[in-house]
Design a protein around this nucleic acid. Structure first.
Length: 207
DNA sequence: TGCCAGGCCCTCTTTAGGGCCTT
């Protein structure tokens, strides 16, 4: 697995907290290499119990659909092989990171790559956006969205497209040709008021 | 019994509270 690839992922789940017993019910992901989608992963998974009507309505995933899905363990084993050592990206990564860690923990596997978060980046570079929900940002950046939000693969695809546009916008705004993953990690840890200074100084060193 | 997420981020802040995001 190439260390410089990034896997953009999204979980649909039974609820908000694996610590409260919630489980994954769908994983969707796209692999980006040099700004191009080179692979995709999508699977429903059976969490071993019924999901409530809020989740059915929110995701469009029904108990009937999950009844014939493979168990979480089988799906997540395949997904662990899919992501390998790739770095990882999600919109509000703290949420997906918790579920990925919890599901991997059940398998005795570990998350090997580093996570970063498109929500934290968008709050820093799109301060004029109405809000920073994924759907709002897709509309804000005029990204064509032909599919259903709150399904894992579609949300992962949309997050990947948003990600590439954010990188392009940062590049153009600060005159950078390449934006390494390490710079994005620094950006997400930097207060909004210091973002311009961080990127301007970085550009001055590179050029 | 009663309660039940958690991390980020702002502000009327740090001896705290509440909105935003994810399902």
């Amino acid at each position: 697995m190439l260390a410089n690839s990034i896997v953009v992922l999204d979980f649909e789940t039974t609820g908000l907290s694996p610590d409260q017993g919630d489980r994954a019910i769908e994983i969707g992901a796209v692999k980006l290499e040099n700004g191009i989608v080179t692979d995709r992963f999508q699977a429903l998974m059976n969490p071993g119990r019924r999901i409530n009507s809020f989740i059915e309505n929110y995701t469009g995933i029904s108990n009937t659909m999950l009844a014939t899905a493979l168990p979480c363990a089988e799906v997540m084993t395949d997904f662990a092989d899919f992501i390998g050592e790739s770095n990882l990206l999600a919109h509000n990564a703290s949420f997906d990171s918790r579920f990925l860690t919890a599901e991997f923990s059940n398998l005795g596997r570990q998350v090997l790559g580093e996570f970063t978060c498109s929500l934290l980046v968008s709050r820093r570079i799109y301060q004029d956006a109405p809000n920073h929900k994924l759907g709002t940002l897709i509309n804000y950046k005029n990204i064509a969205a032909d599919g259903s939000f709150h399904r894992a693969l579609f949300d992962a695809e949309m997050t990947a497209e948003l990600w590439l546009i954010m990188l392009k916008d940062i590049s153009e705004r600060y005159g950078l040709e390449n934006i390494p993953f390490s710079l994005i990690k620094r950006l997400t840890r930097t207060p909004k008021a210091q973002i311009a200074k961080l990127l301007t100084n970085y550009a001055a060193k590179v050029l």
